[in-house]
Every structure is written in C-alpha cells, then in structure tokens.
Design a protein around this nucleic acid. Sequence first.
DNA 1: ATAAAAATAGGCATAAATACCCAAGTAAAT
DNA 2: ATTTACTTGGGTATTTATGCCTATTTTTAT
Lengths: 216, 216
Amino acid sequence: MSATRIIIADDHPIFRSGLKSVIEKDPSIMIVAEVENGREALEKINELTPDVAVLDLDMPEIDGFGVARELQRSNLTVRVIILTMHRDETHFNQAIDLGVRGYVLKDGAASEIVGCIKAVAVGKDYFSPSMSSYLLNRSRHSSSLGMRAGISDLTPAERRILFLLSELKTSKEIAAELGVSPRTIENHRANICQKLDLQGSHALVKFAIKNKSEFA
Amino acid sequence: MSATRIIIADDHPIFRSGLKSVIEKDPSIMIVAEVENGREALEKINELTPDVAVLDLDMPEIDGFGVARELQRSNLTVRVIILTMHRDETHFNQAIDLGVRGYVLKDGAASEIVGCIKAVAVGKDYFSPSMSSYLLNRSRHSSSLGMRAGISDLTPAERRILFLLSELKTSKEIAAELGVSPRTIENHRANICQKLDLQGSHALVKFAIKNKSEFA
DNA sequence: ATAAAAATAGGCATAAATACCCAAGTAAAT
DNA sequence: ATTTACTTGGGTATTTATGCCTATTTTTAT
C-alpha cells in the first residue's frame, strides 16, 4: 500500500517544522506540501489532490473553517483534520458541521496527530479525547426536549451587541456606535438574557467576557 | 569558541520538536536539555548551568514568569529568553521587570528565535520587533512627572478586592466572602478608583478584567 | 399575500456601581 | 506619643443593568 499523501497548513513556521519532523518519522505518511495560509492551502489541494489536509484554524487570508467550507462545496475527496489550540465547544461544533474528520489539539502529544492522520486516512474519524464530551452534548442537544439555547440561536444584531459588550461597552455607548436608541440595546440585552437563560447582576456582561472567544 | 548551551522549556511537544529542529541547524547552539514544565526547568538549569534558557510562559506547575523570578533570586548566571504567543504589553512588561534578556513571539519566523539566542548569548538583548513600541512606553512611563499611580500603590485589602472583582463578583458577594459590610467594599472600590484615576460606569470592573494578569 | 421573525422604541420597577461626602478604630512608623 | 496609613462603616445621589411588560416597523419566509 502506498503512503498517505498529506498537506500541512499552519502559519507558525516553528510549529510547522515541529509537525513536519514528527510526521516524517512515520514512513506511511508523506508530506506533499506545506503552506502558511488558507489561500495557498486551497491552491495546493487543487493541484496535488492529497488524501488528507491538516489545517490550523487561525491562518491569514482564509482561516481553517474557510478552507473546510470550500472543500465541502467542491467535489474533492480530501479529508480534513483540524489542528488547533481552540478547545471550546463552539469551535469544535463548527468544525464538525463543516464535515471535518479529525480535530486535534495542538498541546496534545506528538503521537496524537500522527494517530489522527492514520485513522482518517483509512476512513475513520478521530477527535482529541478532551473534545469527546462535546460529541455527547451534540447528540443530546438535538434530541433533548429542554434544548436550552446557545450562542448560535442569537440573531445577528444580538451577536453584534454581545461582541460589543465583551469589549466592556455600556448600552449607551453601543447605541451611539450603532446609531440607535439606548432602549433598543437594552431590549436586545433583555432578549439575549432570556435566550441564554441568564439572570442576576451584570450576568450578560459576565457571559460576554467569559465566552468572548466564541464569537469574536 | 565553544557552542552556546541552552535549555528549552515548553509544554507543547510538537512545537518543542519544531524548535529543536530549527535550532539544531545552527552548529553554534547546543540544546543540553528539553523540559515540559517550570519545575523541571529549574531542576535542569541548576544541574546543567546552561548559558541561555528559552522559556514558554504558559506551562504547568510553574509558569515562565515563575521560573524567571526564581532565577532572578538565585545567583545563577543563566540568561532568560521568553518565547510566547502573548503579544500584549502587560505580559511583555512583566517579563522585562523580571530581567529577561529576550522576548520572542511564537508566530514569528523560525530564524527569529535563533537570532535571539545568538544575540543573548553574547550579552545583547533581543525583543521581537512588534514588541519594541512597548519599550518606548516604558521609558516614557518612568520619566514622566505625572507618575500616575499603579497597581503597586494599592493596599493589600484593595488588591484582594480588585482580584475578586476581576472574577466578576459584586460588592455584596465580596462582602459576604470577606465577612464585612458591603459598604466597606464600596468604599474600597471608591478609593481604588481614585488612586487609579478611574471614572465612568463600571470603570473599576473594566480595569480589573483588563489587568487581571497583573495581580492574579 | 400572509405569517413569522427581527429590529426598533418606550414605561416602570429593583439592584448594583459610581461619585461625592464623613467618621471611628487599629496598626505601623517616627 | 503622635502622626500616618489602613480598614471599617454610614449617608445620599446619579448612572447603569436587569426584569417584565407593550407596540410599531421592517425584513424574511412560505
């Protein structure tokens, strides 16, 4: 059996060379290209049709999600692995929704990414152990009756306000920035609180700060 | 001239092996140890007395700052380089205050860390270009007459309250936790606001969140 | 075309944070 | 011993955020 042909996309040169040296120890995997942004990744994938693409999420020009989205639309058969620092549920869920076959945390053992590539190459899925609990949440999410809302249930305006709140702006400031009445902002805040089941003093600001990374 | 002897401390295996492969290309540098937490770093530095220590900031057990602090207290001559993702002024300033000789961002070019090690080895300082603007701020800071008060001017009680505020607790909650009257907390807050020249809605909470890392 | 969802705005109440003021007891410094 | 700094507590007022309503306009979907 011939080696698995993969492409690596990550904008950190040092990390990339670490990844390379770790992967190259395994003779069953062959790195056919190494790029530092999403645009180059798409170009090389089109040109070289690798079996697997290992993508960072935070990349210039087009991020890992953007690449995965493009690949999903195309009729290419490349399997996508996300290799990232983001351990939060939102990023993970978004990745799954984009059809990725692997999700590995950057701070994991070196052997983990190699194991993931091998698994994905033979058609299996592979997710970092610390992410597996989110898989449970996903299935429960759609099946349970309680179905408490999440950030994804917010409207665009609500999300914009949540973002501005995470920057510690007041309703008045946000209203001025968006050119609407402060009362509008306050109503949006109230609606968000209801949707997210938040209550208590400054609960929304607290939420905005804690979950900043999920909508920034 | 003999090679520069260095130790590397970083908890990300893949990144560490990238760093290793990049550095090993330069024959004038020799990696004498490679560890994955601060405690091990201190042990190995004591044992092997390397010329330079390349430290990540986010590490288990003892972080990079903790290691730098210990080294500053000791009579060891090892020169410290911080290699981190944190590009904010607070982390940078804290590093400088701990006497580090180099501060390099992880997302920089691979050659940057090598250049930094070489510079520091011969007694020079080396800071990532994007950090250099903060150096200007520092010198202006200490020379200006205005000399507005900082966190260091706060009393123990005030600092404790600031810390609890950064965890988004209300005055009432803090009062309950410390077993005093809510009015006491409110007065402390007012005093802190005056000392730090803070004004406006929830200014103190905003400050507490933004500067959390400085007193956490 | 009609129904549903989203964005807009207001009234009214309570809780919390800021912004001033003042004072008493304690601890540390000299 | 006396000043100084710190901690503690209170009074009062304003601004901001939450909680719970109603209501109009605009956009979206079917």
